[in-house]
């Protein structure tokens, strides 16, 4: 009986909680990003709204909700309104296989990794649709760049995760987590440091995040593929970008940093701490490095990350074959 009332109820509750998580994450990330950006630039950041500016994100979201939905004249209506929705909803599906705690997986499938990789491709589609339907050269160029970048950086990501799958022997995320221990020296990062590094770089490239954020380069392409979106459309793209970042951080935490396992007590708090540490790291990187030129961006991927990923995979396979 693989379809029972319990599973249906579980999935419904899980989807509601995940939506709450995504919205809460956006609020927290907006605040964290602006505050960290401020402190790195030796200035206070948001300060006036609420104590130490904590309610700033709420004001921002209210502003975005209330803004006029302005669209240019001759856009393709269906595609134009479909694109932000397509950006937002697949990310929900991606959160389902992640083991947040020992008993807190929304949908414990045996192919968790492949599900995540499969639906990550849908985000690419939304970029393309947004860029195309805006009827705007800048948007189209931004969309083309974004798509080629995302598709390119998926490959080293897959290779890095595959190396860990080799070690664990299963694509099930829960099994991968269970094979690591609570203490940091028992995590997969010790066994696969190169894979972690590759995954970290492709994480930043996959989510179109600085220094690889040329597709949405605010200073160059006039905001790239979401130029023509204002108000709620932009908010949806924004939300899906932060949700995507959180998702890949969760996956990194599960694969390389021990998931929900931690020194004192296993639980969902550990995975949140690790994921948000990675998010903080991404924000830190954003405000440190200048933007990479597009051909350099793709060169890093095809000439360095891909061979390194393949080499790492080969090495892992060889060691496993010889040693076990």
């Amino acid at each position: 009986m693989f379809l029972s009332l319990a599973i249906v109820a579980q999935i419904i509750v899980a989807v509601l909680l995940i939506i709450a998580l995504m919205v809460g994450n956006a609020v927290v990330m907006v605040y964290m990003e602006r505050k960290v950006a401020g402190f790195i630039q030796r200035r206070p950041g948001p300060y006036e709204v609420g104590p130490y500016g904590t309610l700033q994100a709420i004001c921002d979201s209210m502003k975005l909700l209330a803004k006029q939905l302005y669209r240019p004249g001759n856009v393709d209506l269906i595609l134009y309104y479909l694109a932000p929705i397509l950006a937002f909803f697949p990310v929900l599906l991606l959160y389902l296989p992640i083991p947040f705690g020992p008993y807190l997986t929304a949908l414990p499938v045996g192919d968790g990794v492949i599900l995540i990789l499969a639906f990550a491709g849908l985000g690419v589609l939304s970029n393309l649709l947004a860029g195309w339907s805006s009827n705007n050269k800048y948007s189209l160029l931004g969309a083309a760049r974004a798509v080629s970048q995302t598709v390119a950086y998926e490959i080293p990501m897959i290779l890095a995760l595959l190396a860990v799958v080799f070690l664990s022997g299963s694509t099930d995320l829960k099994v991968v987590t269970d094979q690591q221990g609570p203490w940091p020296w028992q995590w997969n990062i010790v066994l696969q440091p190169l894979a972690f590094f590759i995954y970290l770089v492709s994480l930043v490239g996959e989510t179109n995040r600085a220094p690889f954020d040329l597709p949405e380069a605010e200073s160059e392409l006039a905001a790239g593929f979401h130029t023509e979106y204002s108000g709620m459309g932009f908010a949806l793209f924004f939300l899906s970008e932060y949700a995507n970042m959180l998702l890949v951080s969760f996956v990194a935490a599960v694969f390389f940093l021990g998931g929900y396992k931690g020194p004192i007590a296993d639980g969902f708090w550990w995975i949140f701490i690790k994921a948000y540490a990675l998010m903080f790291f991404m924000v830190w990187i954003r405000w440190t490095f200048p933007r990479v030129r597009f051909d350099q961006l793709l060169n890093i991927n095809w000439k360095w990350l891909l061979p390194l990923g393949l080499f790492n995979l080969w090495l892992t396979a060889a060691v496993i074959k010889v040693a076990f």
Partner: peptide
Amino acid sequence: LMQLLIYVGAVCV
């Protein structure tokens, strides 16, 4: 999942 990954994610792009 492979169908989605390959056809939707790569061929359609």
